[in-house]
Design a protein around this nucleic acid. Structure first.
Length: 159
DNA sequence: TAGGCGATGGTCT
DNA sequence: GACCATCGCCTAC
């Protein structure tokens, strides 16, 4: 279950697409409903959902999940036991889910992805916004969105 | 709980 | 050659 995400868009200096259309940023300018997977700090893969109509270049970075299904497989991939250490960060969750750079540009409504809407018990969960994490530009924008009181965030909501 | 830091490699200037 | 949308391990308190 997605409990933390951040939004990025073209006019936002922290967004990869801010530099314009390049080979790397092309997926951001592509059709919505597709994955944008990039390598972070030379080490990790990070997953984004491309949003907005083709040509707009906006995306949502998936930053944390509450593990609910396939927890055993996540533990094997992560080589960690603690449930809170499996998906509490953008690099962690891609490792736990087996998402790599090969899935860049892949459609989110086809296998191996299987996205589902909120289920009972999650329809009324609150969402808080605060500044985004790990960026140096446009730090004033409150575009980090977290499920209220979730124990599975990458970091607590400040305040 | 917070801060420092090395690993690591593609992208862009 | 600089810059990172990070992680895990370490210290200090």
């Amino acid at each position: 279950m997605i409990v933390e995400a951040e939004s990025y868009e073209r006019d936002d200096p922290a967004c990869h697409a801010h530099v314009g259309l390049t080979e790397r940023t092309a997926p951001l300018f592509g059709p919505p409903g597709h994955a944008y997977v990039y390598r972070s700090y030379g080490v990790h893969a990070c997953l984004n959902f491309v949003c907005e109509p083709e040509g707009s270049a906006a995306a949502v970075l998936i930053r944390a999940l509450e593990p609910r299904w396939g927890v055993g497989e996540m533990r094997r991939r992560r080589e960690r036991e603690g449930k809170r250490e499996l998906c509490s960060g953008p690099g962690k969750l891609t490792e736990a889910l087996g998402i790599g750079l090969a899935m860049n540009r892949a459609p989110l409504d086809e296998a191996p992805f299987d996205l589902r809407g909120r289920e009972n018990g999650w329809r009324d969960v609150g969402v808080e916004s605060c500044p985004r994490i790990g960026i140096t530009r446009a730090t004033e924008l409150p575009w980090r969105f977290c499920a209220t009181d979730s124990e599975y965030l990458s970091r607590p909501v400040p305040g």
